[in-house]
Amino acid sequence: MKLLKVLAVTVAVAMSSPVLAAGEAPAPPNARFGFNSFFGSFDRGAQQRGFQVYKEVCAACHGMRLLSYRNLLDLGLSEPAVRAIAAGYTVQDGPNDEGQMFERPARLSDRFRSPFPNEQAARAGNNGALPPDLSVIVKARHDGANYVRALLTGYVEPPPGVTLADGMHYNEYFPGHQIAMPNVLNDGQVEFADGTRATVDQMARDVTTFLAWAAEPETEQRKQMGVKILIFLAILGGLVYATKRKMWAEVKH
């Protein structure tokens, strides 16, 4: 038992020190996203508004190449609506019988169209900086959802004495603070269909919810299944332990 205790304590100490992201940026504040909780699920309204923010603001520079238009059905949008969204984009197909590549409206099975054909084009169009693909951005950053939200709302005036490099912007939560992405969210920038006021904070929260879903679309199914499995294991554990007690009752050990 003593050995067990020592082990438990040492393991706990070793594990409670996750490796911190580099840079001197402060830890992002906890935005208390519902999907981060134990039974967490996504707010459909926030997801849909978040997609709208992505589509109208972020998508100008950032692709989401791992997503397909059919994935939007998971946001609670109707099939005709998603078909219409897809048809609003053109994708390259072909070659046709004449050997030519051609453009056609996107279908449900097509991947999201990326704003730039390749990395070089993206850098050329963005002052040498590469806007990262956002498909799994929330998984690819430490404390992803809180970080993305903090970053989007973290544009402040640079403190005195800091000189920004050409084309750079000051962000409180970006490692190193100098970020090539300008502040893109302004109050009232998009018009939400459900009447929600498009404040910077609202848009940042909504688009983060959308991105968190995009990174881990299995979240809801995973957590629901996990709860069922833990309940099952609790019952099975009780049964197995009772059986063990009964069996060992006649044996002194």
């Binding site: 099952f232 099975l236 049964l239 197995v240 009772a242 009752a249 006649e250």
Partner: peptide, 29 residues
């Protein structure tokens, strides 16, 4: 195998069967 005819055998058998059935459901899952 296991020691047999001691008091409480039937209760234990029932418990074992229930446990085994549960475990079987788990494996199926």
């Amino acid at each position: 195998a296991a020691p047999g005819d001691v008091p409480g055998t039937t209760k234990r058998d029932f418990l074992m069967l229930t446990t085994a059935a549960f475990a079987a459901v788990g494996v199926g899952g």
